[in-house]
Amino acid sequence: MFDLTGKSALVTGASGGIGAEIARTLHCAGATVGLSGTRVDPLEALAAELGERAHVLPCNLSDMAAVEALPKQAIETMGSVDILVNNAGITRDNLFMRMSDEEWNSVLDVNLTATFKLCKGVMRGMMKARWGRIVNISSVVGATGNPGQANYAASKAGMIGMSKSLAYEVASRGITVNAVAPGFIETAMTDKLTEDQKAGIMGQIPAGRMGTPAEISAAVAYLASAEAGYVTGTTLHVNGGMAML
């Protein structure tokens, strides 16, 4: 659909369901992909599946020194980072009144602070190239909130505010910064839900089904493309109509 030949993309959380599909889609469009994540085995398996133009770049995003090193490693391995997809995220759900500082901080660190540091780490190269695409994977709950997820929702809303601010600053340099906000997507995370929970969720989704990782990765591929050069600071909601924002 979109041609990313010659571009290098760094995807965090590439060991997860959505991240792996984002990497596949960008790779299929011709990009060289850097697969980052904490679990090396699934990253190696994905790299083997993709074949050429795929590099494994393990990184624990709760280790800030490792986060700061990741863009440098990606540039050394791939030559540049033209496309950054901040997809990695964690949840540590709890009722607000019971939420510990540790639960709050760990989610904000991985989801928001690591995103900030990675954006900063790739910005110099993008500014020099006068071309860059940053796609931050937020969530519908960043816009709507969700009981039990004050930390996660805050981090995902924070990513949107950060993306818009950065989008203002670097638009004149040919760099776009956008967010994709998935609704409920079929992944290992949602497989764990009971049938009752799933039925409850379906009732809130006009499309009457969960989304697929490929429906998220298609949105990312669009925002990463040359064709989306005039789209910046936006949030593309991919949620089956669950929240029309």
């Binding site: 110099r124 500014m127 020099k128 600053e169 670097v170 004149s172 340099r173």
Partner: peptide
């Protein structure tokens, strides 16, 4: 932003 680029 130009000043940032100059420093770079």
């Amino acid at each position: 932003l130009d000043t940032v680029e100059l420093v770079m």
